[in-house]
């Protein structure tokens, strides 16, 4: 028990004095992950570390966002998540409910790693740069990027408001996945 508490304290403050007692199985010391951990949960042991502030390099970039939109169709994200992100086989990306988080680094790992209940793992199949464009576009579907950068028109049947006019998702209060 004492050892466990010591280990926890070690994680929280990275106190060098605990080194002797540390039991490393396979992981790196927690401190090494401090700024790079992609967390899928708000819950952390000990005192929470700040969330990473990683952002997609395309979040404010109209060209990157429209590339994201093109790739969303070309890689058949649209087939699983709805042409305008309303969901189909996969969950809606337009609402404010996220299973695996809506931060850029969380979205990046979702798209790259895949997720167990049917999200394919695109990592290694498409370039990272394109994943970052997709991340920015997914955020725009939920109204999370600046409106002047978000794409504004559909080339195809208009079946939803354009990304730069999407309203606040919190207005829809129906059910959960």
């Amino acid at each position: 028990m004492r050892r466990l508490m010591c280990l926890l304290a070690c994680v929280a403050v990275a106190a060098a004095g605990c080194e002797r007692e540390a039991r490393r199985y396979t992981e790196l010391p927690a401190a090494a992950n401090r700024s790079t951990a992609v967390r899928l949960t708000m819950l952390q042991p000990g005192s929470p570390q700040p969330l990473s502030n990683v952002q997609s390099p395309y979040q404010y970039n109209a060209y990157g966002l429209s590339e994201g939109k093109r790739l969303y169709a070309a890689y058949n994200c649209a087939g699983c998540h709805g042409l305008n992100g309303g969901g189909a086989i996969g969950p809606a990306l337009t609402d404010d409910k996220w299973i695996y988080g809506s931060h850029a680094d969380q979205l990046f790992s979702t798209i790259s790693q895949g997720r167990p209940d049917g999200m394919p793992s695109f990592g290694g199949h498409i370039p990272d740069q394109q994943i970052w464009q997709l991340v920015a576009y997914v955020q725009s579907l939920a109204g999370m990027v600046s409106q002047d950068a978000a794409t504004s028109r559909n080339d195809d049947q208009a079946a939803a408001k354009p990304e730069n006019r999407i309203e606040d998702a919190r207005q829809i209060q129906t059910g959960h996945r």
């Binding site: 305008n84 309303g86 969901g87 189909a88 337009t94 939803a160």
Partner: peptide, 17 residues
């Protein structure tokens, strides 16, 4: 309903939205 789709996208669920 069962997958909580967003009918603001009329193509949701491949057209059911």
């Amino acid at each position: 309903v069962s997958a909580d789709l967003d009918p603001r996208d009329a193509t949701a669920g491949n057209g059911w939205g």
